[in-house]
């Protein structure tokens, strides 16, 4: 049990760190593109690569952001539930888990079809689109896992693993 917990938490954190690396990469690519322009060099496909890094920086961090309570929700109704809040949370996490799983399922399908259809970037980079879409697959799957993880913990122990869950009013 403990091993699973440790592995999952490590996975979420790893997602956050990978996302951070992608954010640094965005900065690096944009600086490189500027330097190239000023020195008369060419960095073909820079904007496309920055876009892929944008996707990486977002998707990989979805689960990590969830654990830190960073994703936004309207918590009016939950607060109003008072001591029954747990069942409201169960509803939210269940819906969240279902939608996140649905998104992850189609992310896998979408990347698979990009590969199958040999879809290539329409920009200068001509990258096969399924390669950057790996970040979408990994990030959405991780988010789905995180939702099920929280839901199960909530049902078993009454506590989900989200930080800042009970917000100061």
């Amino acid at each position: 049990m403990k091993a699973i917990r440790k592995t999952l938490d490590a996975l979420y954190l790893a997602g956050g760190i990978i996302a951070a690396v992608f954010l640094i990469l965005i900065l690096a690519i944009i600086v490189a593109q500027m330097l190239a322009r000023w020195t008369g060099q060419v960095f073909p496909g820079a904007t496309d690569y920055a876009g892929y890094c944008m996707a990486g920086a977002s998707f990989f961090a979805f689960a990590y952001a969830l654990n830190h309570g960073a994703h936004i929700r309207v918590s009016l109704f939950l607060s109003a539930l008072g001591r029954h809040r747990r069942w409201g949370e169960v509803f939210c996490f269940a819906i969240g888990a279902i939608i996140a799983t649905w998104v992850a399922r189609y992310a896998i399908k979408g990347a698979y079809w990009s590969w199958k259809l040999n879809e290539k970037s329409q920009g200068l980079d001509a990258t096969p689109i399924w390669i950057p879409q790996i970040s979408m697959v990994a990030g959405t799957v991780l988010l789905a896992i995180a939702f099920w993880d929280h839901l199960i913990r909530l049902l078993v122990s009454g506590q989900h693993g989200m930080l800042n869950a009970n917000r100061a009013e």
Binding site: I26, I30, A55, K109, G110
Partner: peptide, 23 residues
């Protein structure tokens, strides 16, 4: 719906113009 959703999600998330936001 699912296929259309992921098409939109991908282009929105991988957009170059969006990179100004995290920076």
């Amino acid at each position: 719906a699912g296929d259309a959703m992921i098409t939109k999600v991908w282009t929105t998330s991988s957009s170059w113009t969006l990179t100004a936001l995290p920076l």
